[in-house]
Amino acid sequence: MRAPIGSFDNAAPAADRLDLLTGPVASAVTAGWGGFPAEQIIHVDTDPDIADTAVFVEHHGAELLDRSANCVVVAGKRGGEATLAACVVLSHSRVDVNGAVRRQLGARKASFAPMDTAVGRTGMEYGGITPVGLPADWPLLLDPAVVDAEWVLIGSGSRRGKLIVPGKALAALPGAVIVEGLGLRG
């Protein structure tokens, strides 16, 4: 199978690679969501040593920087209570944690969640966290540029491999909210 973006040697429907996905991601891929069948979700098998965006793009081509998205876990705090959420922005952007995220969560303070919290609560590997398969009660904040992308490369829940999904499919995930200004360029 040829991947819709990039020049990956090893692409296949994610439903055929459930053994390479973490439990929550495999369950979400199997179930499908928002009318997007599992066949539209593509898995590309990649080296876990180059999973970090900068190294991945250097290895697979700079054109992927505009077609890749990062998913980060944040914690919004208000009155001693914390709300975990995931934020997805294109890889050339950074998440506006202290502005857009804080306002969207109605938090007094927002910050990136500690690694052990992000990994423990998602059931995914650090460096591979993806919006696919997140806890259903979490807000999923999406930058409009991610949703507008025809295809976007995201984590697969594991450092080994990536998923390629239609941007609109991410907006159909549980808890998804499109947030203007979520991603800050640069």
Rank of each mutant, 00 (worst) to 15 (best):
73 V>C: 05
11 A>G: 07
98 N>P: 02
160 R>V: 03
33 W>Q: 10
32 G>C: 07
151 W>S: 13
130 T>A: 09
12 A>W: 05
119 V>C: 09
13 P>G: 12
172 A>K: 12
185 R>I: 14
179 V>M: 03
172 A>C: 11
162 K>Q: 10
149 A>R: 13
41 I>K: 05
130 T>Y: 07
22 T>M: 10
167 G>P: 13
3 A>M: 11
3 A>T: 12
116 D>K: 11
126 Y>W: 13
31 A>V: 08
6 G>S: 08
143 D>Y: 01
117 T>L: 15
108 R>A: 00
147 V>C: 10
181 G>E: 04
58 E>M: 06
130 T>R: 05
128 G>S: 06
177 V>D: 12
22 T>D: 08
8 F>V: 04
170 L>F: 09
55 V>W: 07
159 R>G: 01
28 A>C: 03
43 H>I: 10
122 T>L: 08
171 A>S: 13
119 V>R: 12
36 F>S: 11
150 E>Q: 14
124 M>Y: 08
72 V>S: 11
66 D>V: 11
113 A>F: 08
91 S>P: 03
5 I>G: 08
22 T>K: 09
142 L>F: 07
45 D>S: 09
149 A>L: 12
35 G>H: 13
59 H>K: 14
46 T>S: 11
126 Y>F: 15
68 S>R: 06
58 E>Y: 03
106 G>T: 00
73 V>H: 01
52 D>A: 14
86 A>S: 14
17 R>Y: 03
8 F>S: 04
30 T>F: 06
110 A>C: 11
83 T>P: 00
68 S>H: 06
34 G>M: 13
114 P>V: 10
159 R>M: 08
117 T>N: 05
126 Y>N: 11
18 L>S: 03
185 R>V: 14
104 Q>W: 03
68 S>I: 05
184 L>G: 01
83 T>L: 04
171 A>M: 10
96 D>T: 01
103 R>E: 08
28 A>Q: 03
68 S>G: 10
177 V>C: 10
98 N>V: 01
15 A>F: 10
144 P>M: 11
168 K>W: 07
33 W>Y: 13
32 G>F: 03
95 V>M: 01
151 W>T: 10
40 Q>H: 14
91 S>T: 06
181 G>V: 00
28 A>V: 00
19 D>L: 06
159 R>P: 00
162 K>M: 09
157 G>Y: 06
14 A>K: 06
76 G>Y: 00
67 R>V: 09
184 L>R: 15
17 R>C: 14
157 G>H: 05
81 E>M: 04
69 A>M: 09
17 R>S: 11
50 I>Y: 14
112 F>A: 13
129 I>V: 15
27 S>C: 08
52 D>R: 14
14 A>Y: 05
157 G>L: 06
62 A>G: 06
81 E>H: 09
32 G>W: 04
56 F>N: 02
95 V>Q: 02
55 V>P: 05
67 R>N: 13
125 E>F: 06
103 R>T: 09
91 S>M: 05
180 E>S: 14
83 T>Y: 02
132 V>Q: 06
3 A>E: 08
22 T>G: 06
90 L>R: 14
46 T>F: 07
113 A>V: 05
161 G>K: 03
152 V>G: 07
30 T>K: 15
16 D>V: 03
139 P>Q: 09
77 K>V: 02
77 K>P: 00
109 K>W: 00
87 C>Y: 04
4 P>F: 13
131 P>N: 08
